[in-house]
Design a protein around this nucleic acid. Structure first.
Lengths: 339, 339
DNA sequence: ACAAGTTGTGTAATCGATTACAAAATCTAT
DNA sequence: ATAGATTTTGTAATCGATTACACAACTTGT
């Protein structure tokens, strides 16, 4: 490699010192116009580019931000990342994306690596399995800005950006009730996580507001995959009084449920309504398009990034807690023609 | 922030010099066992962690690798990235993911930023729109290792990892012929890109090998989206002799085609067969599951990462050109029961 | 003509590590 | 006991930038 040009090379070329070159390049006022011009010209001619590592070391800032998500191959997280990048990129930050694959140990490991790598902040959505908050404390101890999105954890002094999961659950369930469903099941993933807990609470509240009794047998915790949805349907349809609708906390679970209901010859939406959560793209692609609750992931990413930048610049003590709206997207799987 | 512990802090604590501390921490043999022990203990007690920026500046190596893709919200690229991370993570590299959104200017910009950020290498899949190779030359000029995956560009001295697109196109077309189709259309995206060109050549060769004439009216270049597929079907069905099968270079185009054929009341696969390319997850989720060609993206990512590491370590001059197999995945959209 | 102010450059420390080279401390052998 | 070898530690330069401080060279005003 023909070694890179440094400010020393430029200085030697012009018979001046590196300090002068640095000043010329940084628009420092204490420099003559003629010198500045000569430096800029020489720099361009020599293909000079500043060494970010030196800058970072000097400033104690790497301009790298860590984004930690369970995985990037769910559209939801990919879209959030896109939002984050959109916002951070113009400010000169690079985004380092890490996947926990929903494992707590991996999550702790990744945080260690990121802190070690001198990142300027961490934006993350915690794993399903995470019970212990010790590794988050490590972030706070080092005074590294932390913004949680979607999957929250009520931690003192930590900013978060979420959607209104309660309202999402409430609206989706109300919609099913309006469609004439009365025996509505709720499929959840991990009620210990705020998002799933709130969706369920929204579901329950909607039932209460419509004087429908809550049937605990209709509430099932399942794995977040199509298989989980299929198993849940098997369980539900074996009940003495099976439900007539499913409100799922995840599109993948709802998809599995629809697949299984189909196999059982149950007509959707005439005999049974289904609504999911997340508005993953495939919900539109299906022949029987699926209703879902949109979480505006790109907007969520953007907001998380803005909160982060705010925290950096203003060094505010207060943690921001932003809640974005949840938007109902109604499609064939839950809308009866009579409506 | 309670400033971070440095080797100087440890040295002061123990009344020795930073050099000794450095040696103790790096398993340098020129150090007494007792000193090493004391240093390690003190380092642990003081919560010492090396400053990667200083290391990077010293070594001229950042342990950051840039991964550039058109976008991460297509499962294909997300899976490749996963493969790359799997392989690079154990070697201590962080992956910086950048999206070009298929824009050449953005691509050039990103490369500039990455080079500037002192990354140790670039793994990328070029944008559809890229015609000018100037920004690639910039990478080579700086002697930064470059590995291209999937979307290749025949550049001197650049390693690449691709699948056998020709074979994929050939096998998919042969399959359609075996299903009894004779008027097979081919929907492509951008024939100036190697991958699409090769898929088309595979398609043509399969026709030739089966003595079926190539009908140029059956070859349509469309936008890579469901809309593109819908438009193409409109065009094809307006022909005096419409086709009886579609071989699409993209799953999204194939999906759009299926949607439109459905609207037209054409029965799939009885009257018309469709096969896509990429094996995106939604192809399985559809009620009429779609045949496709799997590109083993995770494996592709892993391989690209391995080629990169090889290049770094051995500093080999020769560019590796790895070609992975394409796997036919047959599903309902193209398999007739009579088979 | 000379003190005071302005402007442009140079000197050298700094960020946190690594690493030749030098020097001190300890050990070995006669 | 002492020369010589060996082990351990210290000194100082280095990576590529930034920046406080010092100082020289001009301007100005009187």
């Amino acid at each position: 490699m023909s070694r890179k040009t440094t400010i020393y090379d430029i200085a030697r070329e012009l018979n001046i010192t590196a300090a002068t070159v640095s000043r010329a390049l940084n628009n420092n006022p204490r420099i003559s116009e003629s010198t500045r011009k000569r430096v800029l010209e020489t720099a361009a001619a020599m293909n000079y580019e500043p060494n970010k590592l030196a800058l970072a070391l000097k400033h104690g800032k790497s301009y790298n931000v860590g984004v930690v998500v369970p995985n990037i191959d769910r559209n939801f997280f990919a879209a959030i990342i896109r939002g984050i990048e959109d916002e951070l990129y113009p400010h000169g930050y690079q985004v380092i994306i890490c996947q926990t694959h929903e494992e707590e140990t991996r999550e702790a490991e990744i945080i260690g690596t990121l802190l070690n790598a001198q990142i300027d902040g961490i934006l993350m959505s915690i794993s399903t399995g995470t019970a212990d908050a010790a590794h988050f404390q490590a972030i706070l101890n080092k005074n590294v800005p932390l913004v949680l999105f979607d999957r929250n954890l009520s931690l003192e002094g930590v900013s978060s950006v979420t959607i209104d999961d309660f309202a999402g659950g409430y609206d989706a369930t109300s919609h099913l009730i309006k469609q004439g469903c009365r025996r509505i099941a709720h499929l959840t993933v991990d009620p210990s996580l705020d998002i799933y807990h709130n969706r369920m609470e929204g579901y329950k509240q909607a039932l209460r507001d419509n004087r429908i009794e809550i049937n605990e047998a209709y509430i099932i915790t399942s794995v977040n995959s199509t298989e989980g949805g299929q198993d849940a349907v098997n369980q539900l349809m074996a009940l003495p009084e099976p439900p007539d609708a499913i409100h799922a906390s995840s599109d993948y679970i709802a998809l599995g449920a629809i697949q299984r209901l189909h196999q059982l010859g149950i007509k959707i939406p005439d005999e049974f309504c289904v609504i999911g959560f997340s508005n993953e793209p495939f919900t539109r692609f299906m022949e029987l398009s699926m209703s879902s609750v949109d979480q505006s992931p790109v907007e969520m990413g953007r907001t998380a990034a803005r909160v982060f930048l705010d925290q950096l610049e203003n060094n505010t003590q207060e943690a921001a807690k932003v809640v974005l709206p949840a938007k109902l997207c109604l499609r064939k799987s839950s809308v009866r023609k009579s409506d």
